[in-house]
Amino acid sequence: MVGVDDMLSVENLSVSYGAIKALHGISLRVERGEIVTLIGSNGAGKTTTLRTISGLVRAAAGSISFEGVPIGKLPPHQIVRMGIAQAPEGRGVFANMSVDENLSLGAYARHDKEQIDKDRQRALELFPRLRERLAQSAGTLSGGEQQMLAIARALLARPKLMLLDEPSLGLAPQVVATIFKIIREINAGGTTILLVEQNAHMALNVAHRAYVLEVGKIAMEGPAAELAKSDEVRRAYLGHG
């Protein structure tokens, strides 16, 4: 069922790495203005889903469309230009470059210099910690700061849809709380978000809707608040026995 407001729609997506099938025909959709989260344990196929949407991995079957345009066969750099930016797994900052250069690379595909400057200011307002470290090499940042940089850099692409791959991974609880607060602010500013997380508690708390991915299949879907209450999710992902 394709809704009128669907920004991203993924239909029956299957992905294989050689003989290993990572995704078995998953379908999901993200509406304009939403935060949608994809939760699941390690190896469920969350990162593969994001990589396939970004064009880094090719689907074996199924389709992906963004604002009604099929993007499944486009190369990654064109998908970025269509308005999908990703803060990848492991943050993916360019450790050999300064924070400032990392931010500029985020805006690589854009040419509207004035708006880029405004977006840079806005990103630095969201993450004041980065402003202090602009000239510093990104490799010297702490894990939390690198995650902030990865998100700020994705913001500089001025995306319609932002893909976040496990922003909480390996970070202290206070830092995770800060980052999730900012994710909410970014969304309030009009950016649609697809968030992949192992930290189901935080993810369900911030998201409007959620999908539960289990070994390459969508096991459950629904409004985040409802999933957070469901016994299965509580038992498997929220640590309530």
Partner: peptide, 21 residues
């Protein structure tokens, strides 16, 4: 040049910046 250094550091992440690798 920044794109070259980004590709050199990590090709996959460079393409996520919109760089035509």
């Amino acid at each position: 040049g920044a794109a070259m250094r980004a590709v050199s550091f990590n090709t996959r992440n460079a393409s996520l910046m919109g760089i035509n690798v």
